[in-house]
């Protein structure tokens, strides 16, 4: 954290830019308010609120962390602690289609790494990178709980089960 600079190119390693504050749109704000009623403390709504924010803003920027911290009356640092702990909160912008290949044991021994390698090679990406047009991000993920239909690839919220190099190859072409 020592090198936290406002102009750092790494989004997660910079301070929130106070001139670029974010805010929920009215319908998202209504969803947020409904969340608060489900928990006895405000802080407990942080995980669902982050999911909501990610749907709204695409990723969890430092500005979003400050905004949620204000809404839930917790320190932005605490929000950052939570965001960085969980895998599913994107700390930098991801592509429109987030391709997540499970490579855990059950998927691996059914050739999941071939699919993963194919995705990276086809798109010319390193793990976690996004294509230049902002279309696709490819990451390797841990067990998705779909081992009986391994290998499985998750694209945004959808599971593609019994995947193969060919099927994912075709699928990548259809992602616009």
């Amino acid at each position: 954290m020592a090198h936290l600079q406002p102009d750092s190119p790494y989004a997660t390693e910079r301070y929130a830019d106070t001139t670029r504050s974010v805010e929920f749109k009215p319908d998202a704000k209504a969803k947020f308010d409904a969340l608060l009623e489900r928990y006895p403390t405000k802080e407990a709504a942080l995980l669902p609120a982050l999911h909501l924010a990610q749907e709204e803003f695409g990723w969890i920027s430092p500005e979003v962390m400050v905004y949620l911290g204000t809404l839930l009356e917790i320190e932005p640092a605490k929000v950052f602690g939570v965001v960085s702990f969980y895998n599913m909160y994107n700390q930098k912008p991801v592509g429109k289609h987030h391709v997540q290949v499970c490579t855990n044991l059950s998927c691996m021994i059914r050739n999941a790494y071939d699919i993963y390698d194919r995705c990276l090679e086809k798109l010319g990406l390193q793990p976690g990178e996004t294509t230049k047009d902002g279309r696709i991000t490819v990451t390797e993920v841990e067990c998705l709980g779909s081992c009986g239909t391994a290998p499985v690839v998750q694209i945004n919220n959808d599971y593609h089960e019994n995947a193969s190099v060919e099927s994912i190859d075709k699928l990548l072409d259809t992602l616009k």
Partner: peptide, 8 residues
């Protein structure tokens, strides 16, 4: 209430 985790 359904409380979604976030990948941990």
């Amino acid at each position: 209430t359904v409380h979604r985790g976030a990948g941990a």
